[in-house]
Design a protein around this nucleic acid. Sequence first.
DNA 1: TGCGAGGCTTGATCTACGTCAAGGCACAAA
DNA 2: TTTGTGCCTTGACGTAGATCAAGCCTCGCA
Lengths: 248, 248
Amino acid sequence: MSSEPLLKPINLHHLKTVCSSCSLRELCLPMGLSEEEIEQLDTLVYTRKRVKRGENIYRAGDDFNSLYAIRSGFFKSNVILEDGRDQVTGFHMPGEIMGMDGISTDRHACNGTALEDGEVCVIPFARLEDVAHQVRSLQHQFHKVMSREIVRDQGVMMLLGSMRAEERLAAFLLNLSQRFVARGYSPSEFHLRMTREEIGSYLGLKLETVSRIFSKFQEDGLISVQQKHIRILQVEGLEALLGQQAHR
Amino acid sequence: MSSEPLLKPINLHHLKTVCSSCSLRELCLPMGLSEEEIEQLDTLVYTRKRVKRGENIYRAGDDFNSLYAIRSGFFKSNVILEDGRDQVTGFHMPGEIMGMDGISTDRHACNGTALEDGEVCVIPFARLEDVAHQVRSLQHQFHKVMSREIVRDQGVMMLLGSMRAEERLAAFLLNLSQRFVARGYSPSEFHLRMTREEIGSYLGLKLETVSRIFSKFQEDGLISVQQKHIRILQVEGLEALLGQQAHR
DNA sequence: TGCGAGGCTTGATCTACGTCAAGGCACAAA
DNA sequence: TTTGTGCCTTGACGTAGATCAAGCCTCGCA
């Protein structure tokens, strides 16, 4: 090393934690920003946090300080109700941003829980607003990210308000599939990281119903299920279920 | 008039359309901003739009250009499904901001429909971002408004996912009541601006169920109902319904 | 290599809410 | 004042999905 004193040593840690070299940059906050703009983000996102399955990156009631961009792993948003039940309000995968619920009251409104070991990028929110204040395109991009969350939630509201159990589950599988494709994974074959109970909670159904409908979809040749391993055999079949009249 | 040439004539129109003199400023976008900061907003919000009952301020699919702050009147967000059904995703009252769903894709994702004659302030979004870019506190305030919408939607998801019909309706009435109080109206006596069918659509119930539960609440002495006129007689009674175990 | 616990499946039964149907009320136009 | 129309109420009945219950699979740990 001392034979090449003019070269700066490569800082592996730094290489790993900047947005500009992150493989998820086209899905995450930097989406649509230029190289130079992304470099501004690099000054912002300098902490990563490893999380183990079952751990919370934040809890309902915690002071809100940061947003969290998922780097790897699968997460859920959830609220523990008074009676101890765990109501799931969302599932999240790499490239997605968690914690935006905390902005409005400076306290998190729900928990962010890891469904498997993973890693998140910590985005200090005050600093994000600073950088957004300077980089107008980042400001705009962040608004898009928040808006996307609003639209997504409204989609779930419509699903819960107007679809029957089979339609809900079909919509759920198709949604997962699309999100996997966007991340370069197979659209038709994937591992569910959540339990039947968590799926049911999210979809407003009981775990038995979820299980029964998976079995029915399998009988009908739409999917194959082995525990958490899912293979979609007929996308059109699932899509057809959605096209139907809703009944609630 | 010509005897006082040094006084500028009062511009009534201007007085009417600025945020700084708006009675809703403590509920709306200017919330928490200083006098000077609110004056910056005045350069932004210069158009009001009157809307008649049944008219849309925007429709799903329309190009997104502006947000709309409700000045008066009662509105709903809704989507017309393929089968012609009208799925309601939210009700909105004065001081609330509509249209944020459009930011993510530059197209509105739902309709904004007036439930009665009213007026909205048109907030050109690009200009809002300009001003937010300069006034950091406005940027922050806007993030809070968006976050509040996310939290609100998640509340509805939990309601739809885990509450029974009576609980949903109790939650709905209590929510309306709180929002009326915040606007200086009676918490216990108000006029519903929407039909039973619209309530049902929003809550994932059929209009007959909504009607029956109103009748039951009345029999139980919790409320009195005459068509759209509601009086809440026992808040605690309604609140007690919510405290119970959820069943889905 | 066996054991235990969490998670999943499947069946039998129950029930909350949807569906269908018939009137009734209130407001607006004639 | 009458008549129409949209909205609401109420009853009788049907059903999707919840509840209760039993047993099985799978994987981590002893």
